[in-house]
């Protein structure tokens, strides 16, 4: 029996006892009154189906608060509401403004762990319906993100082509290079062009450099996509590439990816998604 040690339990019991005692007293008082009292008041001339009504004056406190609410009601009816109109949208704007200020100050300089956490959260809401909770593309219903953003994915893109994100230079045709050359170009691209600056196959860099001209025709010598004519490969493998795809959408081989530029995601959130998506293939 240690439940009496709990403050809330003790308070509840004391409250119950107080209510019980009060009830007994009050009920007792009125029972006696009903048994013994004789009516002495003066009746009004109204008669409601046989029930009369005493002429009792209203207690002064009640009367004053009743008058007060009538006056306040008139003010609210004629001035308070119509002239100082409350607006739901106004409240929404204030809510968003204070949230955004807080968000910006809190995440002005997010570290990698914060971005990963935020990215996973946004991914589960906005990306998972198509790419799957784990980002595996759900048996080919969307791009398998665990096989994207690395050298193997670049090789696959060169072999299979890409429909791209509606860049001026259009689609990338399939089979521009054979498998071996594609592997070399991917190695060169990851070491020299991309921000990743690291390749699994350093021995292939030089042969890849020689083959880069095929890619440079559209992506430019520096791989930066010739000022928006084609995708900027220098960001491939980094968050910025994903941020770009989120902004432009994608007409993929499998299906269409919508644009995420209607203001639902902030720039920090897009960067977070990029960080998270790139981590899936590592």
């Amino acid at each position: 029996m240690n439940w009496l040690n709990d403050n809330v339990n003790v308070l509840a019991l004391m409250g119950a006892a107080a209510i019980l005692i009060l009830t007994i007293f009050v009920v007792g008082k009125y029972m006696r009154q009903m048994q013994n009292d004789k009516s002495s008041g003066e009746l009004t001339k109204d008669n409601w189906d046989g029930i009369g009504e005493y002429k009792n004056p209203l207690p002064i406190g009640w009367a004053l608060s009743f008058l007060g609410t009538i006056i306040w009601g008139l003010w609210y009816f004629l001035v308070g509401y119509p002239l100082n109109s409350y607006s739901q949208i106004g409240e929404y704007n204030e809510e968003v403004k204070s949230y955004n200020t807080h968000f910006e100050s809190k995440f002005s300089n997010p570290d990698k762990t914060t971005l990963m956490g935020m990215g996973e959260g946004v991914f589960l809401v906005q990306c998972a319906p198509c790419h799957g909770v784990t980002g595996d593309g759900m048996n080919g219903k969307a791009l398998n993100l665990s096989k994207w953003g690395n050298e193997d994915a670049v090789v696959a893109t060169i072999l299979n082509g890409a429909k791209g994100s509606d860049y001026p230079l259009g689609e990338m045709p399939a089979g521009l290079l054979d498998a071996e050359s594609a592997k070399a170009v991917a190695a060169f691209m990851f070491k020299e062009i991309s921000e990743v600056k690291n390749t699994k196959h350093p021995e292939l860099i030089e042969s890849g450099r020689a083959l880069w001209a095929t890619c440079a025709a559209c992506h430019g010598d520096d791989g930066k996509g010739m000022a928006g004519s084609s995708p900027d490969l220098s960001t491939y493998g980094a968050s910025k590439f994903v941020v770009n795809v989120l902004g432009m959408g994608k007409k993929g081989m499998i299906g269409n990816m919508p644009k995420f530029n209607d203001g639902r995601l902030t720039n920090v959130q897009k960067l977070a998604v990029g960080t998270y998506v790139n981590s899936l293939s590592k």
Binding site: P129, C130, M138, K141, G255, N256, P258, D262
Partner: peptide
């Protein structure tokens, strides 16, 4: 704004396959 034709097709055939 955020779903496309191919997604709707999978979803109407078998909602559990995508959600």
């Amino acid at each position: 704004n955020y779903r496309t034709t191919d997604w709707h097709e999978y979803h109407m055939l078998n909602p559990k396959s995508v959600v």
